[in-house]
């Protein structure tokens, strides 16, 4: 239970920054925007290109999307791994775990269900 240690007086609201200097804060958003635009451009490029091995494209797109979400979290939402952010990060981790279960579980279950017991209109088409 050590990760549930107490939040101290300095615990942060999600979205609040430790930095107070305006110039540094603006710079943070600029870096975030630049990285996000770069990753977005890469995603669009990868999706349309014929230069890379085609089956790797979906994987690449997912990796790029996750990277970009990370950029947004750190530079725009200021969710970092600092000790003052413990509760925020734990809540995020729980949420992501549920998202993973719902999406992954649904796709896995539904693919097996479709395999063994196809939906009605597919059965009709088979007949």
């Amino acid at each position: 239970m050590s990760e549930l240690s107490d939040h101290s007086d300095t615990s942060f609201a999600p979205g609040d920054e430790g930095e107070h200097d305006v110039g540094a804060r603006v710079l943070g958003y600029v870096i975030g925007l630049a990285l996000a635009l770069l990753l977005t451009a890469t995603s669009f490029f990868v999706a349309g290109t014929t230069l890379v091995w085609q089956p790797s494209i979906p994987v690449a797109l997912i990796v790029l999307a996750i990277a970009q979400m990370g950029v947004h979290l750190v530079f725009f939402l200021h969710i970092t791994t600092g000790p003052d952010n413990t509760n925020n990060v734990l809540a995020l981790a729980f949420g992501l775990f549920i998202v993973f279960l719902v999406v992954g579980g649904s796709v896995w279950i539904m693919s097996h269900l479709n395999q063994n017991m196809p939906p009605m209109d597919q059965i009709m088409r088979m007949q």
Binding site: S106, M110, P119, D121
Partner: peptide, 17 residues
């Protein structure tokens, strides 16, 4: 729905999730 590719099992799956 039973038409146009709908799939009732998505409902079972999500509602029990």
């Amino acid at each position: 729905t039973n038409e146009a590719g709908g799939n009732v099992m998505i409902f079972m799956n999500l509602i029990w999730a």
